[in-house]
Design a protein around this nucleic acid. Structure first.
Lengths: 333, 333
DNA sequence: TTGAAAGCGCTAACAT
DNA sequence: ATGTTAGCGCTTTCAA
């Protein structure tokens, strides 16, 4: 059996309370402090965190629930979150939703079982009304990264997808493109909707036009981009293609090349997200970068405010601005 | 305040013990069961997991400590781990070592504070003797993925890096290559040592030779591969280059192309790890695939055996066999 | 099958 | 500054 606070007290000839106070940084007499230090070392004592959590009724843990724990894309977000929470005395632990135990609404258990003091749920999937309702019923602070189901009751943050596409189109327009096709993504991702909206709206705003057959679906994989581009290759006059994510744009790049076209001479191609690979393909892909660190930081700051100061969020929905990264996959017409 | 087991007992006109038993799947009288069910629903009762953990002196949680939570490479490993643990009633939580709180030896706290029942520590860095000693002192089962510091006291699993490179060289040799250069990796990764050993040994075994200037260092980034290849381009006669990881091989690809060489016509290039991008570059990169799911599954199985049956591991060090994936980046001479 | 009671290891109010 | 005491919410003997 592990040594307890009682053992420490006895050996140091003092009481449990004093030990507890010492452990929590309160002042104790010089001599007791030294005795305590010695005994703790000897015994190799460590506080039982479960007992502490029971009494304190909190955990100092923030749960971060992710669709797939190893989705590289989240990396920057996590960094922002951790920096902020660690600076405020919280530990971050990650839960993967791919996990059987967690299930779709596993976060409910995490909250109700008091495994965590706060929750960040990150997903790029569309969220259902039922999901939002479950969130609202929880008694701990929760923040969403991604879709909010247009709901202003729950705190959420996302990148301004519409704006990202707008920047791309304005850029393409500026360098002379007039016939711009679009490879869209899967229905189940909320970004698909907003990015496509950005495409349609901006095309209109600039007085350009598109044929509905120029919007080709894809599954956001490289293979999907490949076959989408195959379809676009059949149409006349298109000079630029926007992939609604980088993988799809890379797939488009690959199929254009395979069919004997040159990028960017025959087709200008742009991606979205600016994943690392965007720089490695040939030609290096122009894309749009999300402020990931900032997203993580903001979401964490918000939660810290709620946790520490009971402060309600000033805004319920935050959209961050992505940034165009110009490389060599587009040509000046 | 949240409802407790006592509240449930009172409302259901029974005792705490009975509620507890019911909650843990024991038999109770038909009528009490129904009353309990009803009250629990009404009260929206949920057990306090911290109280339970205090009493039971366990958590049913496995901690997975990762250098960087968002390193895409781990993905397959995690899947294997989670499948196995969930099937055995354990929850997996992930801790990122990038985190300030965790620090280099943060896992020690996780174990001693009883935050977890078992620990999997995954890292591709070389591990120090001190690290291994700390592990051995822990009172919970621990498994390592990656380096074991040649230690047979702690359970560990890794890919057979030496064998992976051997497969590559045998393949290159088979298709006619005789002068094979090697871009090595950073000192701090244990795989660097084994992969380089695989290179040197196999070259010798096949009766080939290499000039020591054909082993060029890199930092395992695409940029590092780029400049390493620049150096190799200066030597005569080299027909094939092995990158000790895929990023470096891709960088080599890029600089060869930029300098006007054709891959694979002028240079055959091979990578290691078979990351997703390997398929996307041009030409698609021949590489070596690690059995990630299998690694995760094995490590989890091992821990489950220890946790549930107190069974000690039969082997202390397991090496899994990677597999050559031939694409189009090498030419038959 | 059930209930009473003890106890897990800790914190905190209170009195000293 | 320190010790006494009473819980936190649960599980688990033990006796009925």
């Amino acid at each position: 059996m592990n040594p307890t606070i009682k053992d420490v007290a006895k050996l140091a000839k003092t009481s449990k309370s004093t030990v507890s106070r010492y452990l929590n940084g309160h002042k104790v007499r010089r001599e007791t402090e030294e005795a305590l230090k010695k005994v703790i070392k000897e015994l190799n004592y460590f506080p039982n965190i479960n007992a502490r959590r029971l009494v304190m009724n909190n955990t100092r843990v923030i749960g971060i629930v992710v669709d797939d724990i190893a989705n590289n894309f989240y990396s920057g977000i996590f960094k922002g979150i951790e920096d902020m929470f660690n600076a405020n005395g919280y530990q971050c632990v990650y839960y993967s939703r791919t996990s059987h135990y967690q299930g779709e609404f596993g976060f409910v258990d995490l909250a109700r079982e008091r495994q965590v003091d706060g929750l960040i749920i990150v997903s790029f999937l569309k969220r259902s009304q039922k999901f939002i309702e479950k969130i609202q019923k929880l008694s701990i602070p929760v923040a969403l990264i991604g879709d909010s189901n247009q709901n202003e009751q729950v705190f959420s943050i996302d990148v301004n997808n519409e704006h990202g596409i707008r920047e791309i189109i304005k850029y393409l327009h500026r360098i002379g493109h007039r016939k711009i096709a679009y490879i869209t993504g899967p229905e189940e991702f909320s970004a698909t909707h907003w990015r496509e909206k950005g495409y349609k709206d901006t095309i209109k705003e600039l007085g350009l036009s598109y044929d509905s057959s120029w919007i080709v679906p894809s599954d956001w994989t490289e293979a999907g981009g490949y076959s989408a581009m195959m379809k676009l290759l059949e149409f006349d006059g298109i000079t630029a293609v926007i992939g609604s994510n980088d993988e799809v744009a890379i797939g488009a790049l690959l199929s254009a090349r395979e069919m004997g076209y040159k990028v960017p001479m025959d087709y200008s191609i742009v991606g979205f997200d600016d994943i690392a690979v965007a720089r490695w393909v040939y030609p290096p892909l122009t894309s749009v970068k999300q402020p990931l660190y900032e997203i993580g930081e903001k979401v964490a700051e918000e939660l810290v405010n709620q946790l520490k100061h009971g402060k309600a969020p000033t805004e319920k929905r935050i959209l961050t601005e992505p940034q165009l990264v110009v490389r060599q996959s587009c040509i000046n017409l």
